[in-house]
Design a protein around this nucleic acid. Structure first.
Length: 490
RNA sequence: GGGCCGGUAGCUCAGCGGUAGAGCACCUGACUUUUAAUCAGAGGGUCGUGGGUUCGAUCCCCACCCGGCUCACCA
């Protein structure tokens, strides 16, 4: 790989260090404190004049004068200023600091803590060591690394330079930890199910396909964990959950990434009302863990996580926004007529369910800013959910919306194997008619249901979108460390 | 996939037919309390890629690559 001038300069300095018998990449350091710990114990360490050794990356500019020098280092726990004087570290290392050590190099410094005359807490260095020489130069000192593409392609650099971005991913970890604890405390068992699946199911999506050489078999990367987790409810676990990646072979936009993290949980002897309560409680706990309050701001808009969240049926929501009552237009012709009557766009290619969904997505979803449950979806859109006894064309299903985004999806799970089989057959017909996202027939899942699955509530939460909401990030790419980007060919 | 915008020094950006610019960074020198250090000086570019128009193209035209926003799609 060809080096730029700046890289070559740094590589030359590295060789100078080697020539002086200094390993620019020594295997160990002698750190006595993290910077965070040293700052926390600062007054004590000053009073006792304790000699300590800190390590970290040089950030910002080195300020080297004739006989003294300043620089800041950071180690992930904090930042501190180094104060170096020619008298204390000696000519050799003072000049080495000036001539061979650069911004971004990782160093170790031994000395005592004190405040400078301006009052800044600093390590007055007596001994310096190089821990790792940086060959790549830093971006611009003030503007930093702005270019979105480079921030994502070189996330490591983004995290060094834009250190506040680390907080987004710390919050992400806290969100997942808190969710896991909430589920554990409620008796759910964490499980792992296959990522490589011979059939894909549990969601409406196109899959990524791969091939197992030894078995001579096509496999799919999972689009959901649902059908495996419900097999475990059949198997007798009272509650299970899985947090993991799903893969959907679809487009990329501000709220979609081809691989994304989903939490799915299933609770035996519960229904979708119990799942609504679970969402309210669990997301409340998570919001408190991250923000310490249940009312937060997302992209300038207030979000109130205090329970109970509003509940509105899909039919009511559509009627409210469009004046169309889908419960009275139960066939496509009638529905199209109602849409046309109001001067709205009719999708001639859509099925009834698809047309309903389009009405919902276009006219209702953008308005669902505060945390809201939309409940009771048409059965035709919900092939894995149980019918509402009094209204068998609708299913006991809800989706949770926050800031106009679908965050969660839940049902009272369909446990009638005959109905499930018929729903799969309906999906096969849709697939044959050109719906590439229709579900596949899963005979083994039907077989599991034939052994009897208790009434069960199931829930999926899109972790990435939840993190967006709770960290006030505008796009999903900002909450995924390494978001999907096209390969660069130059 | 459509529309709009962008890709120029390591980074942040200006320039938009006539020798390629600034700031920061880097390099050289001075400097014992800096923190956007300061002062003086120097270097650094296939202007995303490939064609075309032109006496001459970073600039105009075409195609392509890579992004951003947006619409569509993806419940």
């Amino acid at each position: 790989m060809e080096l730029t001038d700046l890289q070559a300069q740094r590589a030359a300095k590295l060789e100078q260090l080697r020539a002086a018998g200094i390993d620019p990449f020594p295997p160990r350091c002698q750190r006595s404190h993290t910077i965070g710990a040293a700052l926390a114990a600062f007054d004590n360490l000053v009073a006792r004049e304790t000699t300590i050794t800190l390590a970290g990356r040089i950030i910002g500019a080195r300020r080297v004068m004739g006989k003294i020098a300043f620089a800041h280092i950071e180690d992930g726990s904090g930042e501190i200023q180094l104060w170096l004087s020619r008298a204390d570290v000696g000519d050799e290392w003072f000049e080495r600091f000036r001539d061979q050590i650069d911004t971004f190099d990782i160093v170790q410094a031994t000395g005592t803590l004190r405040r400078t005359k301006t009052g800044e807490r600093s390590l007055f260095v007596r001994e310096l060591r190089v821990l790792a020489k940086a060959i790549n130069p830093p971006p611009e000192k003030w503007a930093g690394l702005q270019d979105v593409e480079e921030r994502h392609r070189q996330r490591y650099l983004d995290l060094i330079v834009n250190r506040e971005r680390r907080d987004v991913f710390r919050a992400r970890a806290r969100i997942i930890t808190t969710m896991r604890r909430a589920l554990d405390e409620r008796g759910f068992l964490e499980v792992e199910t296959p990522v490589l699946q011979p059939l894909y199911g549990g969601a409406a999506a196109r899959p990524f396909t791969t091939y197992h050489n030894a078995l001579g078999q096509n496999l799919y990367l999972r689009i959901a964990t649902e059908l495996y987790l419900k097999r475990l409810i059949v198997g007798g676990f009272p509650g299970v959950y899985e947090i993991g990646k799903n893969f959907r072979n679809e487009g990329v936009d501000r709220s979609h990434n081809p691989e994304f993290t989903m939490m799915e949980c299933y609770q035996a002897y519960a229904d979708y009302h119990a799942m609504m309560a679970l969402v309210e409680e669990m997301l409340g706990e998570i919001c408190l863990a991250v923000h310490g309050t249940l009312t937060i701001t997302y992209q300038g808009r207030e979000l109130d996580f205090r329970p109970p969240w509003p509940r509105i049926t899909m039919a009511e929501a559509i009627a409210e926004r469009t004046g169309i009552d889908i419960t009275r237009h139960t066939d496509l012709t009638s529905l199209h007529a109602a849409i046309a009557e109001r001067g709205l766009r009719v999708d001639r290619k859509a099925s009834w369910a698809k047309q309903v969904d389009e009405l919902f997505s276009e006219f209702v979803q953008p308005h669902l800013v505060r945390p809201t449950f939309v409940i009771d979806y048409p059965v035709a859109m919900s092939p894995l959910a149980k019918r509402i006894p009094e209204r068998p064309d609708f299913a006991e299903r809800f989706e949770a919306f926050i800031a106009g985004m679908e965050i969660g999806n839940a049902f009272t799970e369909l446990n009638d194997p005959f109905d499930q089989e018929e729903r799969f057959r309906e999906q096969l017909r849709a697939f044959a008619a050109g719906d590439e996202e229709a579900h596949q027939m899963d005979e083994d899942f039907i077989n599991a249901l034939r052994y009897g699955m208790p009434p069960t509530g199931g829930l999926g939460i899109g972790i990435d979108r939840l993190v967006m909401v709770l960290t006030d990030q505008p796009t999903i790419r900002e909450v995924i460390l390494f978001p999907h980007l096209r390969e660069r060919t130059d």
